[in-house]
Nucleic acid binder design. Structure first.
Lengths: 225, 225
DNA sequence: GTCGTGCCTTGATTTAGGTCAATCAGAATT
DNA sequence: AATTCTGATTGACCTAAATCAAGGCACGAC
């Protein structure tokens, strides 16, 4: 086993496992392994059998799909403290997307089959899972209508506001992934993202210093969302 | 109780309830009511407390969201034999979308709270639910990248192929909802849908007779998907 | 140093699709 | 039959964003 005490504490705090008793948690741990990803390294591909689900310890995992043209669309960026691929576990057993490390990343790999067995005997955990999944579904529904109902500029502003930490003064966002990745996440081209930011800067609504963006007028931005 | 024997049979065949024992099913039935919707009549609105989930007996239910501008975006069209709003049940307790009858519609309304209580004691049912929800999540993920990666024309073709019944000869699709509703479903304007269909017709790929569309070359269409 | 290489920005051009408006057909109402 | 209404179609136009292309700037390698 290659997880240290801090990792285990981290993992225990994750949404899905918080409902487990100590003995259940230990059992899950017995079927868990730490793993590292190099920048750009693939973890699994769309269509692979969904044998495991994962928890991010450090770094960032990119969940994306490939268009027939070869172009890739980023579906989600998973940060430390979050699970991913836990939904595929109950399905036909295939991952619906690709997962790859965006930078050097450490994660925990958990055995799907074993976990499903555990869930079968634990109603509370089961409900927690159901809630978690429907939460993510609402997120996806939101995503869909943002993509269809809102313009590129509105999506950019929405993303900035989402990323804004609670009481940060001055209100600012640090982009911890390259801009072209954010662009893909928002369904636009890097050039468009660049232009949108330039426009917002021209209107004095934000200041951009490299990957640090200061929101000068959160209220005004929220109105434009 | 205003459900007849055929309705009950229909309901029992629905995905979520097939896993129930007879006594459990009867219990659910005791908390169920039939309901009718007039064309355009609202069932619930985005933000309403999610007290019930539903099963469509006949007609079509439109699940949609309102843009700030007042324009509506159709998220899904629910046909007879399918459940909806079952995901919201486990969540914060608010519906994330509006539901309204697209035409005269009969449906069964089921008590969420009661059903959640039932799930708590039934591991099998729980897993079935989890599977069902992750299935729908995959669908939503697909939807997202169709919207971002594919052009309007491609989405139209994809929709036609989806609607195509299995061994229909000649391969044809009957549009059972108005074209402007389909357009919204696909994230385009009615005019654009009209033009796309006109273009496909010009290329001899389809024939349009009112709401009946004949696919002359399924293979070619699939290549364009 | 200088040469790459990757990432971002900026400009010029093109294009898919939205908007506006006119027309038309079918269904419903008088 | 005349009339309004609703939805579909078509055309003319416009706009947001993609695409193509050219630098700029920081970084590491040599």
């Amino acid at each position: 086993m290659n997880l240290n005490a801090a990792d285990i504490q981290h993992l225990k705090g994750g949404y899905l496992l918080a409902a487990l008793s100590d003995s259940e948690f230990d059992e899950v741990l017995a079927h868990a392994n730490a793993r590292t990803l190099a920048p750009g390294e693939g973890l699994f591909d769309q269509g692979d059998p969904a044998t495991h689900f994962f928890f991010v310890l450090s770094g960032i995992v990119k969940l994306c799909r490939m268009a027939p043209s070869g172009e890739e669309k980023v579906m989600d960026l998973v940060r430390p403290g979050f699970f991913f691929a836990e939904a595929a576990m109950f399905m036909s057993g295939r991952y619906p997307i690709n997962a790859r490390g965006l930078e050097a990343t450490r994660l925990v790999s958990l055995d799907s089959k074993h976990f499903v067995g555990l869930v079968r005997g634990n109603g509370d955990l089961c409900l927690r899972l159901l809630s978690k999944m429907s939460q993510r579904m609402h997120g996806l529904i939101n995503e869909i209508d943002k993509l269809t109902l809102h313009s590129g500029a509105e999506r950019v502003i929405g993303y900035l506001l989402e990323q804004l930490p609670e009481g940060a003064a001055p209100p600012s966002v640090r982009l911890l992934v390259p801009k072209h990745v954010i662009a893909s996440r928002l369904g636009i081209q890097p050039e468009t993202l660049s232009r949108v930011l330039a426009k917002l800067r021209a209107k004095q609504l934000i200041d951009v210093h490299d990957d640090m963006i200061v929101l000068n007028d959160v209220e005004a931005l929220r109105r434009l969302s």
